[in-house]
Simulated scan of single mutants.
Amino acid sequence: MKFLSLTLAGLLLATPAFAQEAALPPEPQTPTLPSDIDVDGDSLTIGAGAVYLPDYEGSDDYRFTPAPGAIGSYKGFSFQLAGNRLSVDVIPDRSANGIDFQAGPIGVVNLNRTSIDNIDDARIRALGEIDTAIELGGYVGIAKTGVITSPYDRLSISASYRVDVTDAHGSGIFQPSVSYLTPLSRKAAVGLFATAERVEGDFARTYYSVTPAQSLASGLPVFAARGGWKNYSVGALATVSLTGDLLHGLKIVGGGTYSRLLNGFSYSPVVRIAGEKSQWLGVVGLAYTF
């Protein structure tokens, strides 16, 4: 799930992103940062969570699965590992006015319907498994620290494009995203994010079409899907430090995402008959910042 990646990335970003850009706001009666906190230094956050998500994109059946995550910064370069997505920011600039330009490679392992053992609906299982897609590409973005609520909040806008290099669906995906994160104190932060995806024709046909042979096997009607805007997703997240603060120590993270399939994708029998165009996802887990 693409919005699983965004949710996990947001949960991890809520902890160290402020360390990469600026100091944290003090708690009441704590006017200065402790001297042992290096807000401009390297950092690493690792985490894992339990995720409640649909059996496949468009399903109305849900299951739990574990998911890892990590985010780090070294000499101004940064990376994110969020579930099935890895990205690297190769532009190390951090300007005095809080603007951060971002660009770099991105890779996604698309596991949608790759195992029928994880799908409850017999009609979808009858359509057969789809090979794992390795989607590689790049992204560009810009972020600004100190935007709305305080000198420490952060607004980010980005866009990515990636292509399946394994010929599982053999097409491209364009994805714009926006996120907003703000610390509430030295120990807590919240955020909001939104994204959408526009996919090419072969992607649509692979995951949302029903061929005559598949119709005979599953009982679903024949359907020819076409490319276009596939879905939008919005979500919220929160993190609270259990030890230390947002810059270091153990914290609990949690969040949720709502996604809605659009246009012809919502009319596919995979969604309209066997599933549901409204999709939900929830995550809760632990992360540690070094």
Rank of each mutant, 00 (worst) to 15 (best):
F223A: 06
G249R: 03
K277I: 00
F265R: 11
S218R: 07
T243I: 03
L216V: 11
G256K: 02
A225D: 07
S241M: 08
L262G: 01
D245L: 02
K277H: 14
T257S: 14
L262Q: 15
A236T: 13
T239F: 01
V270N: 09
G228Y: 08
L262M: 15
L220P: 09
L250R: 01
N231E: 15
V253H: 04
Y267P: 00
V240E: 09
R226E: 15
A274P: 01
S268L: 07
S241Y: 01
F265I: 10
L220E: 10
R226W: 00
K251N: 11
F223R: 02
P221C: 05
G249W: 06
A217C: 02
G264W: 00
S268M: 06
L250F: 13
V271H: 09
V222W: 01
L261A: 09
P221S: 11
K230N: 13
L220I: 05
L220K: 09
V240W: 07
L237T: 12
V240I: 10
V222K: 03
N231P: 00
V270K: 08
L220Q: 05
S218I: 06
V271M: 08
A225V: 08
G255P: 07
L250G: 05
S233W: 06
T239K: 00
L262Y: 03
G255E: 06
R226I: 01
N231V: 05
N263W: 08
G275R: 10
F265A: 10
N263H: 13
R260K: 15
G264Q: 15
S259T: 15
V270T: 14
G249D: 06
S218M: 04
G228A: 11
Y258E: 06
F223D: 05
A238L: 01
S268P: 08
A217H: 03
G254Y: 04
L246H: 03
L247F: 14
L216N: 12
L220S: 09
F223H: 12
V271W: 07
A238D: 02
A225M: 11
N263E: 14
A225G: 04
S259W: 06
V222Q: 10
V234M: 10
T243V: 04
T239P: 00
I273S: 09
G256A: 15
P221R: 05
